[in-house]
Design a protein around this nucleic acid. Structure first.
Ligand code: MN
Ligand code: MN
Ligand code: MN
Ligand code: MN
Lengths: 218, 218
DNA sequence: GTAATATGTTAGAGTAATCTAACAAATGTT
DNA sequence: AACATTTGTTAGATTACTCTAACATATTAC
Protein backbone atom coordinates (compact mmCIF):
# COMPACT_ATOMS: atom_id res chain seq x y z
CA UNK A 1 0.00 0.00 0.00
CA UNK A 2 1.29 3.39 -1.07
CA UNK A 3 1.77 5.90 1.76
CA UNK A 4 -0.22 9.13 1.77
CA UNK A 5 2.89 10.91 0.62
CA UNK A 6 3.44 8.57 -2.30
CA UNK A 7 -0.25 8.84 -3.22
CA UNK A 8 0.07 12.63 -3.28
CA UNK A 9 3.17 12.51 -5.48
CA UNK A 10 1.54 10.14 -7.97
CA UNK A 11 -1.62 12.23 -8.07
CA UNK A 12 0.46 15.36 -8.68
CA UNK A 13 2.43 13.68 -11.47
CA UNK A 14 -0.83 12.52 -13.02
CA UNK A 15 -2.48 15.94 -12.81
CA UNK A 16 0.55 17.91 -13.98
CA UNK A 17 1.24 15.84 -17.06
CA UNK A 18 -1.94 16.41 -19.06
CA UNK A 19 -0.67 16.33 -22.66
CA UNK A 20 2.51 14.26 -23.08
CA UNK A 21 2.48 13.08 -19.48
CA UNK A 22 5.88 14.66 -18.92
CA UNK A 23 6.58 16.63 -15.77
CA UNK A 24 9.79 18.16 -14.47
CA UNK A 25 10.95 18.04 -10.90
CA UNK A 26 10.66 21.81 -10.37
CA UNK A 27 6.97 21.78 -11.28
CA UNK A 28 6.41 18.80 -9.07
CA UNK A 29 8.17 20.31 -6.07
CA UNK A 30 6.36 23.64 -6.51
CA UNK A 31 2.99 21.92 -6.85
CA UNK A 32 3.49 19.87 -3.71
CA UNK A 33 5.10 22.68 -1.72
CA UNK A 34 8.30 20.77 -1.00
CA UNK A 35 11.90 21.60 -1.84
CA UNK A 36 13.42 20.36 -5.06
CA UNK A 37 15.83 17.99 -3.28
CA UNK A 38 12.86 16.51 -1.44
CA UNK A 39 10.95 15.92 -4.65
CA UNK A 40 14.11 14.59 -6.28
CA UNK A 41 14.71 12.07 -3.52
CA UNK A 42 11.09 10.90 -3.58
CA UNK A 43 11.27 10.52 -7.36
CA UNK A 44 14.19 8.16 -6.90
CA UNK A 45 12.03 6.08 -4.54
CA UNK A 46 9.17 6.07 -7.03
CA UNK A 47 11.62 4.96 -9.70
CA UNK A 48 12.86 2.11 -7.49
CA UNK A 49 9.24 1.04 -6.95
CA UNK A 50 8.63 1.05 -10.71
CA UNK A 51 6.12 3.87 -10.50
CA UNK A 52 7.90 6.46 -12.63
CA UNK A 53 10.33 6.49 -15.53
CA UNK A 54 13.41 8.47 -14.62
CA UNK A 55 16.67 9.41 -16.27
CA UNK A 56 19.00 12.08 -14.97
CA UNK A 57 18.08 15.56 -16.21
CA UNK A 58 15.14 14.21 -18.21
CA UNK A 59 11.48 14.99 -17.52
CA UNK A 60 9.50 12.49 -15.45
CA UNK A 61 6.81 10.20 -16.76
CA UNK A 62 4.59 7.82 -14.84
CA UNK A 63 4.87 4.12 -15.66
CA UNK A 64 1.64 2.26 -16.41
CA UNK A 65 1.66 1.08 -12.81
CA UNK A 66 2.23 4.58 -11.45
CA UNK A 67 -0.40 6.03 -13.74
CA UNK A 68 -2.96 3.53 -12.51
CA UNK A 69 -2.24 4.23 -8.85
CA UNK A 70 -2.43 7.97 -9.52
CA UNK A 71 -5.73 7.60 -11.37
CA UNK A 72 -7.19 5.55 -8.53
CA UNK A 73 -6.28 8.24 -5.99
CA UNK A 74 -7.99 10.77 -8.24
CA UNK A 75 -10.95 8.40 -8.44
CA UNK A 76 -11.21 8.44 -4.64
CA UNK A 77 -10.84 12.23 -4.59
CA UNK A 78 -13.52 12.90 -7.18
CA UNK A 79 -15.98 10.31 -5.88
CA UNK A 80 -15.61 11.93 -2.47
CA UNK A 81 -16.20 15.43 -3.83
CA UNK A 82 -19.31 14.28 -5.64
CA UNK A 83 -20.58 12.49 -2.56
CA UNK A 84 -20.03 15.53 -0.35
CA UNK A 85 -22.02 17.72 -2.73
CA UNK A 86 -24.74 15.25 -3.67
CA UNK A 87 -25.34 13.41 -0.42
CA UNK A 88 -24.10 15.74 2.29
CA UNK A 89 -25.17 19.10 0.93
CA UNK A 90 -21.78 20.79 0.71
CA UNK A 91 -21.12 23.52 -1.86
CA UNK A 92 -18.76 22.77 -4.75
CA UNK A 93 -16.36 25.29 -3.23
CA UNK A 94 -16.15 23.47 0.12
CA UNK A 95 -15.31 19.94 -0.86
CA UNK A 96 -11.75 19.95 -2.18
CA UNK A 97 -9.95 20.22 1.16
CA UNK A 98 -11.99 17.42 2.71
CA UNK A 99 -11.50 15.20 -0.36
CA UNK A 100 -7.77 15.90 -0.18
CA UNK A 101 -7.78 13.93 3.08
CA UNK A 102 -10.43 11.29 2.38
CA UNK A 103 -8.69 10.32 -0.88
CA UNK A 104 -6.13 8.50 1.29
CA UNK A 105 -8.62 6.22 3.04
CA UNK A 106 -7.86 2.60 2.23
CA UNK A 107 -11.22 0.88 1.90
CA UNK A 108 -12.58 -0.35 -1.42
CA UNK A 109 -15.79 -1.16 0.45
CA UNK A 110 -16.23 2.48 1.42
CA UNK A 111 -15.66 3.97 -2.01
CA UNK A 112 -17.68 1.30 -3.78
CA UNK A 113 -20.63 2.06 -1.54
CA UNK A 114 -20.28 5.77 -2.23
CA UNK A 115 -20.20 5.06 -5.93
CA UNK A 116 -23.28 2.87 -5.68
CA UNK A 117 -25.26 5.34 -3.56
CA UNK A 118 -24.67 8.01 -6.21
CA UNK A 119 -25.52 5.58 -9.01
CA UNK A 120 -22.01 5.55 -10.48
CA UNK A 121 -21.42 9.18 -11.41
CA UNK A 122 -19.16 9.97 -14.39
CA UNK A 123 -18.06 13.45 -13.29
CA UNK A 124 -17.15 15.30 -10.13
CA UNK A 125 -18.84 18.57 -9.07
CA UNK A 126 -16.36 20.58 -11.13
CA UNK A 127 -16.98 18.56 -14.27
CA UNK A 128 -13.80 16.49 -14.12
CA UNK A 129 -14.24 12.85 -15.12
CA UNK A 130 -14.10 10.19 -12.41
CA UNK A 131 -11.66 7.40 -13.40
CA UNK A 132 -13.17 3.92 -13.37
CA UNK A 133 -11.97 1.10 -11.08
CA UNK A 134 -9.16 0.22 -13.52
CA UNK A 135 -7.97 3.83 -13.59
CA UNK A 136 -9.31 4.58 -17.08
CA UNK A 137 -10.69 8.04 -17.77
CA UNK A 138 -13.06 9.37 -20.40
CA UNK A 139 -11.07 11.80 -22.53
CA UNK A 140 -13.11 14.76 -23.71
CA UNK A 141 -12.11 17.43 -26.20
CA UNK A 142 -13.36 20.63 -24.65
CA UNK A 143 -12.55 24.15 -25.76
CA UNK A 144 -11.61 27.01 -23.45
CA UNK A 145 -14.17 29.81 -23.74
CA UNK A 146 -11.49 32.22 -25.01
CA UNK A 147 -10.89 29.98 -28.02
CA UNK A 148 -14.46 30.50 -29.26
CA UNK A 149 -15.80 32.97 -31.82
CA UNK A 150 -18.38 35.73 -31.60
CA UNK A 151 -21.81 34.19 -32.19
CA UNK A 152 -20.87 30.74 -30.87
CA UNK A 153 -23.40 29.15 -28.52
CA UNK A 154 -21.63 26.93 -26.02
CA UNK A 155 -22.35 24.80 -22.96
CA UNK A 156 -20.09 24.87 -19.88
CA UNK A 157 -18.73 21.37 -19.30
CA UNK A 158 -15.71 21.55 -16.99
CA UNK A 159 -13.54 23.93 -15.01
CA UNK A 160 -9.79 23.75 -15.26
CA UNK A 161 -7.92 24.45 -12.00
CA UNK A 162 -10.98 25.27 -9.92
CA UNK A 163 -9.85 27.23 -6.89
CA UNK A 164 -12.16 28.31 -4.11
CA UNK A 165 -12.03 31.94 -5.26
CA UNK A 166 -12.85 30.96 -8.82
CA UNK A 167 -15.83 28.88 -7.69
CA UNK A 168 -17.10 31.75 -5.56
CA UNK A 169 -16.78 34.06 -8.57
CA UNK A 170 -18.88 31.70 -10.68
CA UNK A 171 -21.52 31.41 -7.94
CA UNK A 172 -21.70 35.20 -7.77
CA UNK A 173 -22.39 35.32 -11.51
CA UNK A 174 -24.94 32.46 -11.49
CA UNK A 175 -22.67 30.33 -13.64
CA UNK A 176 -22.80 26.59 -13.02
CA UNK A 177 -21.94 23.47 -14.99
CA UNK A 178 -24.26 22.86 -17.92
CA UNK A 179 -24.91 26.59 -18.38
CA UNK A 180 -25.51 27.53 -22.01
CA UNK A 181 -24.15 30.89 -23.11
CA UNK A 182 -23.70 32.87 -26.32
CA UNK A 183 -20.60 34.87 -27.12
CA UNK A 184 -21.63 38.45 -27.83
CA UNK A 185 -18.24 40.03 -28.37
CA UNK A 186 -14.53 39.63 -27.82
CA UNK A 187 -12.34 42.61 -26.86
CA UNK A 188 -9.14 42.54 -28.86
CA UNK A 189 -7.10 44.57 -26.36
CA UNK A 190 -7.40 42.44 -23.22
CA UNK A 191 -9.05 39.31 -24.65
CA UNK A 192 -12.04 39.73 -22.36
CA UNK A 193 -15.35 38.33 -23.60
CA UNK A 194 -18.94 39.45 -23.27
CA UNK A 195 -21.43 36.60 -22.98
CA UNK A 196 -25.17 36.31 -22.66
CA UNK A 197 -27.02 33.64 -20.67
CA UNK A 198 -30.34 33.32 -18.84
CA UNK A 199 -30.95 36.52 -16.89
CA UNK A 200 -27.50 37.90 -17.73
CA UNK A 201 -27.72 39.35 -21.26
CA UNK A 202 -24.43 41.23 -21.03
CA UNK A 203 -21.82 39.75 -18.70
CA UNK A 204 -18.13 40.57 -19.07
CA UNK A 205 -15.63 37.80 -18.36
CA UNK A 206 -11.88 38.42 -18.18
CA UNK A 207 -9.38 36.29 -20.08
CA UNK A 208 -8.33 34.68 -16.83
CA UNK A 209 -11.88 33.49 -16.27
CA UNK A 210 -12.43 32.43 -19.89
CA UNK A 211 -9.38 30.19 -20.09
CA UNK A 212 -10.69 28.23 -17.09
CA UNK A 213 -14.16 27.66 -18.55
CA UNK A 214 -14.10 24.57 -20.74
CA UNK A 215 -17.06 24.38 -23.08
CA UNK A 216 -18.57 22.49 -25.98
CA UNK A 217 -20.09 24.24 -29.02
CA UNK A 218 -23.73 23.35 -29.50
CA UNK B 1 -2.81 19.54 15.38
CA UNK B 2 -2.11 16.11 16.85
CA UNK B 3 -0.63 13.60 14.39
CA UNK B 4 -2.53 10.41 13.59
CA UNK B 5 -0.13 8.56 15.82
CA UNK B 6 -0.70 10.89 18.75
CA UNK B 7 -4.46 10.73 18.19
CA UNK B 8 -4.30 6.94 18.32
CA UNK B 9 -2.27 6.97 21.55
CA UNK B 10 -4.67 9.38 23.24
CA UNK B 11 -7.68 7.39 22.11
CA UNK B 12 -6.10 4.21 23.45
CA UNK B 13 -5.30 5.83 26.78
CA UNK B 14 -8.86 7.09 26.99
CA UNK B 15 -10.40 3.74 26.12
CA UNK B 16 -8.12 1.66 28.34
CA UNK B 17 -8.61 3.71 31.48
CA UNK B 18 -12.32 3.24 32.09
CA UNK B 19 -12.55 3.31 35.91
CA UNK B 20 -9.71 5.27 37.53
CA UNK B 21 -8.33 6.44 34.23
CA UNK B 22 -5.02 4.75 34.98
CA UNK B 23 -3.22 2.77 32.32
CA UNK B 24 0.19 1.13 32.34
CA UNK B 25 2.65 1.21 29.50
CA UNK B 26 2.48 -2.55 28.86
CA UNK B 27 -1.27 -2.40 28.28
CA UNK B 28 -0.84 0.59 26.06
CA UNK B 29 1.89 -0.98 23.96
CA UNK B 30 -0.04 -4.25 23.65
CA UNK B 31 -3.23 -2.44 22.67
CA UNK B 32 -1.50 -0.40 19.97
CA UNK B 33 0.66 -3.27 18.73
CA UNK B 34 3.95 -1.45 19.32
CA UNK B 35 6.93 -2.40 21.48
CA UNK B 36 7.13 -1.21 25.06
CA UNK B 37 10.08 1.12 24.37
CA UNK B 38 8.10 2.67 21.52
CA UNK B 39 5.13 3.33 23.76
CA UNK B 40 7.44 4.57 26.48
CA UNK B 41 9.13 7.07 24.20
CA UNK B 42 5.81 8.34 22.86
CA UNK B 43 4.53 8.72 26.42
CA UNK B 44 7.46 10.99 27.15
CA UNK B 45 6.44 13.13 24.15
CA UNK B 46 2.85 13.23 25.35
CA UNK B 47 4.09 14.27 28.76
CA UNK B 48 6.18 17.08 27.24
CA UNK B 49 3.08 18.25 25.36
CA UNK B 50 1.07 18.28 28.58
CA UNK B 51 -1.25 15.53 27.38
CA UNK B 52 -0.49 12.89 30.01
CA UNK B 53 0.62 12.79 33.65
CA UNK B 54 3.76 10.72 33.98
CA UNK B 55 6.10 9.68 36.75
CA UNK B 56 8.68 6.92 36.42
CA UNK B 57 7.25 3.47 37.15
CA UNK B 58 3.80 4.92 37.87
CA UNK B 59 0.66 4.25 35.84
CA UNK B 60 -0.30 6.80 33.19
CA UNK B 61 -3.20 9.18 33.38
CA UNK B 62 -4.44 11.63 30.78
CA UNK B 63 -4.38 15.33 31.67
CA UNK B 64 -7.60 17.27 31.14
CA UNK B 65 -6.16 18.46 27.86
CA UNK B 66 -5.22 14.93 26.79
CA UNK B 67 -8.57 13.57 27.86
CA UNK B 68 -10.38 16.14 25.77
CA UNK B 69 -8.33 15.42 22.66
CA UNK B 70 -8.88 11.68 23.18
CA UNK B 71 -12.61 12.15 23.61
CA UNK B 72 -12.81 14.24 20.45
CA UNK B 73 -11.07 11.52 18.44
CA UNK B 74 -13.58 9.05 19.85
CA UNK B 75 -16.33 11.49 18.91
CA UNK B 76 -15.11 11.45 15.30
CA UNK B 77 -14.86 7.64 15.37
CA UNK B 78 -18.36 7.06 16.73
CA UNK B 79 -20.04 9.72 14.61
CA UNK B 80 -18.46 8.06 11.59
CA UNK B 81 -19.60 4.59 12.60
CA UNK B 82 -23.15 5.83 13.08
CA UNK B 83 -23.08 7.65 9.77
CA UNK B 84 -21.82 4.58 7.92
CA UNK B 85 -24.64 2.45 9.35
CA UNK B 86 -27.44 5.01 9.18
CA UNK B 87 -26.70 6.85 5.97
CA UNK B 88 -24.60 4.46 3.93
CA UNK B 89 -26.18 1.13 4.76
CA UNK B 90 -23.17 -0.65 6.25
CA UNK B 91 -23.61 -3.39 8.86
CA UNK B 92 -22.51 -2.70 12.43
CA UNK B 93 -19.76 -5.27 11.93
CA UNK B 94 -18.27 -3.46 8.91
CA UNK B 95 -17.77 0.06 10.17
CA UNK B 96 -14.99 -0.05 12.73
CA UNK B 97 -12.06 -0.39 10.34
CA UNK B 98 -13.27 2.46 8.15
CA UNK B 99 -13.94 4.68 11.19
CA UNK B 100 -10.44 3.87 12.44
CA UNK B 101 -9.16 5.83 9.44
CA UNK B 102 -11.79 8.55 9.08
CA UNK B 103 -11.41 9.48 12.76
CA UNK B 104 -8.16 11.22 11.74
CA UNK B 105 -9.74 13.55 9.20
CA UNK B 106 -9.26 17.15 10.27
CA UNK B 107 -12.44 18.98 9.28
CA UNK B 108 -14.93 20.26 11.85
CA UNK B 109 -17.16 21.14 8.89
CA UNK B 110 -17.28 17.52 7.81
CA UNK B 111 -18.11 16.01 11.19
CA UNK B 112 -20.59 18.75 12.06
CA UNK B 113 -22.47 18.06 8.85
CA UNK B 114 -22.50 14.33 9.60
CA UNK B 115 -23.82 15.08 13.08
CA UNK B 116 -26.52 17.35 11.67
CA UNK B 117 -27.60 14.92 8.93
CA UNK B 118 -28.15 12.24 11.61
CA UNK B 119 -29.94 14.72 13.88
CA UNK B 120 -27.25 14.65 16.58
CA UNK B 121 -27.16 11.01 17.64
CA UNK B 122 -26.22 10.17 21.24
CA UNK B 123 -24.88 6.66 20.64
CA UNK B 124 -22.88 4.78 18.05
CA UNK B 125 -24.12 1.56 16.40
CA UNK B 126 -22.67 -0.52 19.26
CA UNK B 127 -24.41 1.52 21.93
CA UNK B 128 -21.35 3.51 23.01
CA UNK B 129 -22.04 7.15 23.79
CA UNK B 130 -20.80 9.81 21.36
CA UNK B 131 -18.86 12.53 23.22
CA UNK B 132 -20.14 16.07 22.63
CA UNK B 133 -18.08 18.83 21.01
CA UNK B 134 -16.40 19.63 24.33
CA UNK B 135 -15.44 16.01 24.84
CA UNK B 136 -18.02 15.30 27.53
CA UNK B 137 -19.65 11.88 27.62
CA UNK B 138 -22.90 10.65 29.13
CA UNK B 139 -21.92 8.20 31.89
CA UNK B 140 -24.33 5.30 32.19
CA UNK B 141 -24.40 2.60 34.84
CA UNK B 142 -25.04 -0.55 32.93
CA UNK B 143 -24.78 -4.09 34.23
CA UNK B 144 -23.10 -6.99 32.44
CA UNK B 145 -25.64 -9.72 31.72
CA UNK B 146 -23.71 -12.19 33.89
CA UNK B 147 -24.23 -9.95 36.91
CA UNK B 148 -28.02 -10.37 36.71
CA UNK B 149 -30.29 -12.78 38.56
CA UNK B 150 -32.65 -15.47 37.34
CA UNK B 151 -36.00 -13.85 36.62
CA UNK B 152 -34.56 -10.44 35.74
CA UNK B 153 -35.97 -8.81 32.64
CA UNK B 154 -33.34 -6.65 31.00
CA UNK B 155 -32.79 -4.52 27.91
CA UNK B 156 -29.55 -4.67 25.93
CA UNK B 157 -27.99 -1.22 25.91
CA UNK B 158 -24.34 -1.47 24.92
CA UNK B 159 -21.64 -3.90 23.90
CA UNK B 160 -18.26 -3.83 25.55
CA UNK B 161 -15.30 -4.59 23.26
CA UNK B 162 -17.35 -5.35 20.17
CA UNK B 163 -15.19 -7.33 17.77
CA UNK B 164 -16.31 -8.38 14.32
CA UNK B 165 -16.71 -12.00 15.42
CA UNK B 166 -18.80 -10.98 18.40
CA UNK B 167 -21.08 -8.82 16.24
CA UNK B 168 -21.51 -11.69 13.77
CA UNK B 169 -22.40 -13.97 16.67
CA UNK B 170 -25.09 -11.57 17.82
CA UNK B 171 -26.49 -11.22 14.29
CA UNK B 172 -26.69 -15.01 14.04
CA UNK B 173 -28.75 -15.09 17.25
CA UNK B 174 -31.03 -12.17 16.27
CA UNK B 175 -29.69 -10.08 19.13
CA UNK B 176 -29.50 -6.35 18.53
CA UNK B 177 -29.36 -3.24 20.69
CA UNK B 178 -32.61 -2.56 22.52
CA UNK B 179 -33.46 -6.27 22.68
CA UNK B 180 -35.41 -7.17 25.82
CA UNK B 181 -34.65 -10.58 27.36
CA UNK B 182 -35.50 -12.54 30.47
CA UNK B 183 -32.97 -14.59 32.38
CA UNK B 184 -34.27 -18.14 32.63
CA UNK B 185 -31.40 -19.80 34.43
CA UNK B 186 -27.74 -19.49 35.33
CA UNK B 187 -25.44 -22.52 35.24
CA UNK B 188 -23.24 -22.51 38.33
CA UNK B 189 -20.48 -24.61 36.80
CA UNK B 190 -19.49 -22.48 33.76
CA UNK B 191 -21.48 -19.30 34.48
CA UNK B 192 -23.39 -19.67 31.23
CA UNK B 193 -26.88 -18.19 31.11
CA UNK B 194 -30.10 -19.24 29.43
CA UNK B 195 -32.21 -16.34 28.22
CA UNK B 196 -35.55 -15.96 26.51
CA UNK B 197 -36.44 -13.25 23.97
CA UNK B 198 -38.82 -12.84 21.03
CA UNK B 199 -38.72 -16.04 18.96
CA UNK B 200 -35.89 -17.50 21.05
CA UNK B 201 -37.44 -18.94 24.22
CA UNK B 202 -34.37 -20.89 25.27
CA UNK B 203 -31.03 -19.50 24.12
CA UNK B 204 -27.80 -20.41 25.86
CA UNK B 205 -25.14 -17.69 26.16
CA UNK B 206 -21.62 -18.40 27.41
CA UNK B 207 -19.98 -16.34 30.12
CA UNK B 208 -17.73 -14.75 27.52
CA UNK B 209 -20.79 -13.50 25.67
CA UNK B 210 -22.63 -12.40 28.81
CA UNK B 211 -19.86 -10.23 30.16
CA UNK B 212 -19.86 -8.27 26.90
CA UNK B 213 -23.61 -7.61 26.93
CA UNK B 214 -24.32 -4.50 28.98
CA UNK B 215 -27.95 -4.22 30.04
CA UNK B 216 -30.41 -2.28 32.16
CA UNK B 217 -32.98 -3.98 34.37
CA UNK B 218 -36.53 -2.98 33.44
C1' DG C 1 12.68 -13.21 52.20
C1' DT C 2 14.40 -14.97 48.07
C1' DA C 3 13.38 -16.21 43.43
C1' DA C 4 10.72 -15.77 39.34
C1' DT C 5 7.96 -12.96 36.50
C1' DA C 6 6.11 -8.85 34.80
C1' DT C 7 6.71 -4.20 33.92
C1' DG C 8 9.42 -0.11 32.88
C1' DT C 9 13.58 2.21 31.14
C1' DT C 10 17.81 3.26 28.50
C1' DA C 11 20.84 2.97 24.64
C1' DG C 12 21.50 2.58 20.02
C1' DA C 13 19.88 2.05 15.46
C1' DG C 14 16.73 2.26 11.18
C1' DT C 15 13.20 4.22 7.90
C1' DA C 16 10.37 7.76 5.66
C1' DA C 17 10.04 12.28 4.68
C1' DT C 18 11.67 16.54 5.05
C1' DC C 19 15.17 20.59 5.03
C1' DT C 20 19.46 23.92 3.61
C1' DA C 21 23.78 24.69 1.32
C1' DA C 22 26.50 23.93 -2.41
C1' DC C 23 27.39 22.59 -6.89
C1' DA C 24 26.39 20.86 -11.83
C1' DA C 25 23.88 20.69 -16.06
C1' DA C 26 20.67 22.58 -19.21
C1' DT C 27 18.41 26.39 -21.15
C1' DG C 28 17.67 31.19 -22.50
C1' DT C 29 19.53 35.87 -23.64
C1' DT C 30 22.23 39.09 -25.63
C1' DA D 1 30.18 32.36 -27.55
C1' DA D 2 29.59 34.13 -22.98
C1' DC D 3 26.77 35.06 -19.26
C1' DA D 4 22.65 34.61 -16.55
C1' DT D 5 18.93 32.00 -15.11
C1' DT D 6 16.50 27.95 -14.37
C1' DT D 7 16.51 23.24 -13.37
C1' DG D 8 18.52 19.12 -11.37
C1' DT D 9 21.63 16.73 -8.18
C1' DT D 10 24.51 15.60 -4.11
C1' DA D 11 25.75 15.80 0.62
C1' DG D 12 24.57 16.12 5.18
C1' DA D 13 21.37 16.97 8.82
C1' DT D 14 16.69 16.81 11.30
C1' DT D 15 12.19 15.03 13.00
C1' DA D 16 8.71 11.54 14.00
C1' DC D 17 8.09 6.99 14.81
C1' DT D 18 9.59 2.63 15.11
C1' DC D 19 12.62 -1.50 16.49
C1' DT D 20 15.91 -4.95 19.43
C1' DA D 21 18.98 -5.83 23.15
C1' DA D 22 20.11 -5.09 27.62
C1' DC D 23 19.26 -3.68 32.11
C1' DA D 24 16.43 -1.89 36.22
C1' DT D 25 12.51 -1.80 39.13
C1' DA D 26 8.25 -3.60 40.87
C1' DT D 27 5.15 -7.28 41.74
C1' DT D 28 3.90 -12.03 42.62
C1' DA D 29 4.78 -16.73 44.10
C1' DC D 30 6.66 -19.82 47.04
MN1 MN E 1 -10.57 18.61 -5.87
MN1 MN F 1 -4.03 14.37 -0.49
MN1 MN G 1 -15.26 1.26 16.62
MN1 MN H 1 -7.05 5.30 14.17
Amino acid sequence: MASQTVENYLKALYNLGDDKGEVNISELSAHLGVSKPTAHSMVKNLFDEGLVHYQKYKPLKLTDKGEKVGALVIRKHRLTEMYLVDKMGFGWDEVHDIAEQIEHINSPLFFDRMDELMDFPQFDPHGSPIPDKDGNVIKNEYLALNQCQVGDVVQLKTLSHSSKDFLNFLDKHDISLGQIMEIISVEVFDKSVIVSYDKHPNELLSQKVCERLLVLKI
